[in-house]
Design a binder for these strands. Structure first.
Length: 275
DNA sequence: TGCGGGGATCATAAGTGATG
DNA sequence: CATCACTTATGATCCCCGCA
């Protein structure tokens, strides 16, 4: 299609372009990613993507998420539609892990296979770094598919694209999220000043993740988060032999990045504003 | 090697919103 | 209200993988 070199692999019927920067392929990948069962961006389809692509506003799927209504308007979308599409892009940024994997457009990986991967490799970095044998272990994935997935993540450009999507605000919802977290059911005490969270923020965060915040240290407390210049609670925790962790350790315990945690706090605060 | 089924692609029809 | 431009839904079809 793009006039570049093509290659026929083995007995395959189709010829496919082997040019890594093939324009036509890049475009098709974007169209695929925004469609149903993947990012599912309402109000935008092949035509608009092509226009945005040809204008240079969108070079890869990650660019979609940094679009503003003005660029859509310049691509020939009506004013009202431009706003609507902008809204649906923002909504689509929060995406289930399996759909995210499907959207990557890995060869031989559709909805079903993506689900298999989504349940085994959490978070996304585990998937990127997974060894070939780990894919082969999965029932339903054989030699060809395993190799295809493994090769995909060995390509630096693919990994970069994933990072770019996350930077542009895409948030992956992992299958375990909401059901259970390492924090849920835990009684937690906070003492001292934290670097990234105000006292109210950390309380909101722990509550949102299903934990309980206690104001005093007792033997029932699971662990105590210690910030700068801790108060008497720290001393008492040591006496009782309660596990103490730093702010950084707490963050890694949640299994989320700092930005994700801040997002959670923001949402929680927005909920509270309604009342 | 054959079977069952997922993955990819295509065709067509129906739905939606903007516009004059 | 009719038309246009696109999107969205559905089904058919074929390739080819996983597995017995």
């Amino acid at each position: 299609v793009c006039g570049g070199k093509v290659e026929k692999i083995g007995d395959e019927v189709a010829y496919r372009c082997i040019n890594a920067s093939c324009k036509a392929q890049a475009l098709e990948r974007i169209k695929y990613a925004i469609s149903k069962g993947k990012f599912d961006i309402a109000g935008i389809g092949d035509e608009i993507v092509e226009k945005l692509f040809n204008l240079g506003y969108v070079k890869d799927i990650a660019d979609i998420f940094s679009l503003d209504a003005r660029k859509l308007f310049l691509a020939g979308v009506g004013e009202k539609n431009a706003l609507k599409i902008y809204e649906s892009i923002q909504k689509s940024k929060v995406i289930d892990y399996d759909k995210f994997i499907t959207a990557l457009g890995i060869r031989y990986v559709g909805e079903q296979t993506a689900k298999l991967l989504a349940n085994k490799f959490i978070p996304i970095d585990r998937l990127i770094e997974a060894r070939l044998e780990e894919f082969l272990e999965i029932k339903g994935i054989g030699d060809v598919v395993a190799n295809s997935i493994y090769k995909f993540f060995r390509d630096e450009n693919n990994v970069k694209l994933i990072r770019k999507m996350l930077e542009n605000g895409v948030k992956i919802i992992y299958p375990t999220e909401g059901k259970e977290s390492p924090i849920s059911g835990k009684i937690i005490v906070v003492t001292g000043t934290l670097k990234n969270f105000s006292r109210q923020d950390i309380i909101n965060l722990i509550t949102k993740l299903g934990g309980k915040v206690s104001e005093s240290v007792s033997s029932k407390v699971d662990f105590i988060i210690v910030g700068e210049s801790p108060g008497s609670k720290y001393k008492k925790a040591q006496e009782l032999g309660i596990k103490t962790i730093s702010e950084e350790e707490f963050i890694s315990l949640t299994g989320k990045t700092l930005t994700e945690l801040i997002d959670i706090i923001k949402k929680k605060n927005d909920e509270l504003k309604l009342f």
